[in-house]
Design a protein around this nucleic acid. Structure first.
Length: 567
RNA sequence: UGGGGCGUAGCCAAGUGGUAAGGCAGCGGAUUUUGAUUCCGCGAUACGGAGGUUCGAAUCCUCCCGCCCCAGCCA
């Protein structure tokens, strides 16, 4: 059965179990979910998990997923974020179709329902200032006490609430509170605030309102209005569920949504907190929300991470209720897995070292054939030009190699990929003793890379022709933070990895890379996966390293390996 | 002696009384014109701890320990 295969791919988790049970018990006939971002920042990979769950589950059950902006606080929300969020969700591969909503679409209905609560004696206008309200709310271990305004008459409450709406009072003067239980163990039930006065223009409703519903009063009711069946959110809202249910129970809402919580995603060596990410952007620690070092979807996209890899990653990480920190290596794995199959191969020398082949005829050289992608036969081949003067990677030569180093060294023969075997005959140094050029000889009988006599070499090096290679800037990105679990509470700067961006300006890449296009991944052989950066221009190639290839050589000789990737 | 959650290998995570899936990482080995990819093999006498129930417990009960969330007129 095909559907079985699909389920295995999607994975099983407690949320799907709940939905299965609901359908089996006929508690619901359709599955409607929603992804409810607040437009006050960019989406990050943690949101990708929530998006994947909400849209994915709806898709699997033939239901639908709404995109609903939770825009109940005009002092923090902006249109720029709304646009960015839509763009990122589409890029990730999901579509809400015609189901685009805003909590602000329901402000009129919400207002009516607030009056409904007042009329039924379940809400009241409180004049307590914020600080007094806090004191009277009690503490985690002590019950709160009732506000002196708790027993106002319905008429008085209605009058005051109308006047709040009509702008008679300044910010903070009064709030509408639910009348529940000031002694409840759950703080959310100690007469939570439902409406507050905010004289601020709203991106969508303009100046129509000067009172706005709180998250608690807006969320569940919006779910009910839209017919959401399963309202999936993260663990910190668990304590809000009794309030969510209380409101649904006490209001004439058109449907009965249920809230379920799952643990949010945490990634090692990074931070998935809008507060901190916003800080990084505002303080200039990164170049913007789309800085390739950012865990935002915009940053990952610019870095070259395919949407498919992000989906694969969140699927592998799984959904559960236990807080956890996922190893960044798992993300890297998903990225490589996708890119290995799709990225065409090219040769690029990041840190060039000149190599001259003494016995190779001078002139324009010759054309050789290179495979575009050994993982994909349909990717075809391309021609590359070999010549007397080339560049190889500095790291591929050592004058005094340790035993396990089997690349080029004095007197040693290696293969130049798709070309010939070359042997290092002489090392040229400058005045300060740095190696500046290697003089080699080649074996004409090894054209294409195989020796007629069957002899082997231990290494194959990538190279570019000195005559036709083009210059490029290459940006190597490393972990943004030094520690697996950064302390973002105090000194953020102290936690940042000083080597998070290493820019190489002397790189030389094969001519075919001059035609690289935005959004197309490429593998620089033996180096990693790269992509063109949007800042590239006609005469300026800039490549971002998405992720390096797995590398058991540098790994073997790493001594300070704290999990921090070295350049 | 507030309320709500969570604890299964280095990191995720299945498992819902019948004798510990899978993935990532790691370590061996094979193949290899990318030290890549691919392929093969290796890890929990044990599920935070201690008791108990049971023929049998990661799964049920009791107590204990640890971690997370909640005292915004943020979401």
């Amino acid at each position: 059965m095909a559907s079985e295969t699909a389920e295995v791919v999607a994975g099983r988790d407690f949320i799907r179990d709940i939905i299965d049970a609901d359908i089996a018990a006929r508690r619901t006939t359709e599955v409607v979910t929603r992804f409810p971002p607040e437009p006050n920042g960019y989406l990050h990979i943690g949101h990708a998990k929530a998006i994947w769950i909400n849209f994915g589950v709806a898709q699997e059950y033939g239901g639908r997923c709404h995109l609903r902006f939770d825009d109940t606080n005009p002092t923090k929300e902006e249109q720029e974020y709304i646009d960015a969020i839509k763009r990122d969700i589409h890029w990730l591969g999901f579509d809400w179709g015609r189901h685009l909503y805003y909590a602000s679409d329901y402000f009129d209905q919400l207002y009516d329902w607030a009056e409904h609560l007042i009329r039924s004696g379940k809400a009241y206008v409180d004049d307590l200032p914020a600080d007094e309200m806090r004191v009277m709310r009690g503490s985690l271990t002590e019950p709160g006490c009732n506000s002196p305004y708790r027993d106002r008459t319905v008429a008085e409450n209605l009058d005051l609430f109308h006047r709040m709406r009509d702008g008679e009072f300044p910010n903070g003067a009064r709030v509408l509170r639910a009348r529940i239980d000031m002694a409840a163990g759950n703080m959310n039930l100690r007469d939570p605030v439902l409406y507050r006065i905010l004289h601020a223009a709203h991106p969508r409703t303009g100046t129509k309102w000067c009172i706005y519903p709180t998250y608690d009063f807006a969320h569940g009711q919006s779910d009910a209005i839209e017919g959401v069946t399963h309202s999936l959110c993260s663990l910190e809202f668990e304590d809000h569920r009794p309030l969510y249910d209380w409101l649904i129970d006490n209001l004439p809402v058109p449907s009965r949504p249920r809230q379920y919580e799952f643990a949010r995603l945490n990634l090692g060596y990074t931070v998935l907190s809008k507060r901190v990410l916003t800080q990084l952007v505002r303080h200039g620690h990164v170049t913007g929300w789309d800085d390739p070092r950012m865990p935002t979807l915009a940053g990952l996209r610019r870095r070259g991470v395919p949407a498919a890899a992000i989906q694969d990653f969140v699927r592998r990480a799984g959904i559960a209720r236990a807080n956890s920190v996922v190893d960044i290596a798992m993300l890297d794995h998903s990225i490589r897995d996708v890119l290995n199959k799709t990225a065409p191969r090219r040769m690029a020398v990041l840190r060039p070292l000149k190599l001259r082949i003494d016995n190779y005829p001078s002139g324009s050289g010759e054309e050789l054939v290179a495979v575009n992608n050994p993982e994909d036969a349909t990717a075809g081949t391309r021609r590359i030009r070999f010549g007397r003067e080339l560049y190889i990677e500095r790291d591929d030569f050592m004058e005094a190699p340790p035993k396990k180093f089997y690349r080029l060294a004095p007197g040693r023969e290696v293969r130049l990929r798709y070309a010939y075997f070359v042997t290092c005959r002489e090392v040229v140094k400058n005045a300060v003793g740095e190696v500046v050029e290697l003089i080699c000889t080649y074996d004409p009988a090894t054209r294409g890379g195989n020796a007629a006599d069957g002899r082997k070499v231990q290494a194959t090096l990538h190279w570019v022709g000195a005559a036709d290679a083009i210059s490029a800037e290459i940006r190597l990105y490393n972990l943004l933070f030094d520690r697996a679990e950064p302390d973002t509470g105090s000194d953020l700067i102290a936690e940042l990895n000083a080597m998070s961006l290493v820019t190489l300006t002397e790189s030389r890449v094969e001519p075919a890379l001059g035609a690289a296009t935005l959004g197309e991944p490429v593998q620089f052989e033996r180096q990693g996966y790269f992509c063109l950066d949007p800042l590239s221009g006609p005469n300026r190639l800039i490549f971002n390293r998405t992720v390096g290839l797995r590398d058991s050589w540098t790994k073997a000789r790493a001594t300070d390996d704290q999990g921090v990737e070295k350049i």
